[in-house]
Design a protein around this nucleic acid. Structure first.
Length: 318
DNA sequence: TACTAAATAT
DNA sequence: TATATTTAGT
């Protein structure tokens, strides 16, 4: 079975999109109106910092709708100390000198706290990272909190992970139920890709489908979790945020590591990297991190025209 | 408190 | 309709 693991690893690695493929489009996320409204300083000089310029009329309507739901959130949002959030920008990643802090920073954090979080779109890349984390932990020990920590994706909440984990488990159940020949590759299994295309996009470790087989929690060697490695600050952002028409709020994400193979077969403990990020613990509001760049990615199936899928991608820091 | 499951919203 | 978020129960 270990051979399959290796094969599995090789497979998804090959399927990983190249950086070029990941950055086909460039648009801005923040409209001038919003920037002004939220006292945001956008760096137009930065090509990576993109602003979506949509119809201003829509923007206004969206903001109004937002405010309607804001009061609800305000009730439960803890008072965020005027945390300067000094570490929001990574010194090393000079590529993106993005100053795009929305609703945060200098006392302007109120809007951020009150704003709803944009829907998180689980891109195949992000899901793959999720799977890697689960594989690393073992399906047995894979719990939302741990997975979240292991993924080290800023902006990703425990709820996000829990929700995804919930679906993923259901997917695994289905896979086991089918128990056809799906073993060895979730992508190739007889799974209805139409329903589980996201999960099918990433290989499912055979272990997931055969629990109890191994009693060990560390059935996966570390070397098989390259995506969890942060061999510095190179980043391939996998997080994607969907911008709904009525939720004109930019999303900030931290680097999630890179999806490529380890440069030298050297691996480090992901938690080490995480620790540094823990300094950026969110106090009810999303942490702003250097924005690598937004890429609009439309999903063919969900081409609902109304929403935009924004994905962060690295600029090749490495 | 955290996790899981179900319901709700988009 | 599908997916993500939110809520409630354990």
């Amino acid at each position: 079975m270990r051979e399959e693991d290796s094969n599995w690893f090789s497979r998804w690695e090959e399927e990983l999109p190249s950086p070029e493929e990941l950055m086909p489009l460039s648009q801005t996320l923040i409209t001038p109106d919003l920037a002004i409204a939220f006292d945001i300083t956008t760096n137009n000089n930065n090509n990576n910092n993109i602003i979506i310029q949509q119809q201003q009329n829509l923007q206004l309507q969206q903001q109004q709708q937002q405010q309607q739901s804001l009061h609800l959130l305000q009730q439960q949002i803890p008072t965020t100390p005027s945390n300067p959030t000094t570490q929001q920008q990574q010194p090393s990643s000079g590529d993106f000198a993005d100053s795009g802090e929305i609703g945060s920073g200098n006392g302007a954090d109120e809007p951020a706290r009150t704003l709803k979080r944009p829907r998180l779109v689980w891109t195949p890349q992000l899901h793959k990272r999720f799977v890697d984390a689960v594989a690393h932990l073992g399906i047995k020990n894979a719990v939302p909190k741990t997975i979240m920590q292991l993924m080290s994706v800023d902006g990703l909440t425990r709820e996000n992970v829990a929700s995804h984990l919930q679906k993923y488990r259901l997917y695994l159940k289905r896979m086991q139920g089918l128990s056809g020949g799906g073993s060895g590759g979730g992508g190739g299994g007889g799974v209805d890709a139409a329903t589980d295309h996201l999960f099918a996009s990433s290989p499912v470790p055979a272990h997931f489908l055969h629990p109890g087989r191994t009693n060990s929690d560390h059935f996966l060697p570390f070397v098989q979790v390259p995506a969890l490695q942060h061999h510095h600050q190179m980043a391939a952002a996998a997080v994607t945020a969907v911008q709904h028409p009525q939720l004109q709020q930019p999303q900030y994400h931290r680097q999630v590591g890179h999806f490529g193979s380890p440069p030298n077969g050297h691996f480090e403990h992901p938690f080490l990297s995480r620790q540094s990020q823990q300094q950026l613990h969110r106090l009810g509001a999303p942490v702003h991190s250097p924005v690598a760049g937004y890429v609009e990615d439309k999903e063919p199936e969900n081409a609902s025209g109304g929403r935009k899928v924004l994905t962060l991608f690295p600029t090749g820091d490495d």
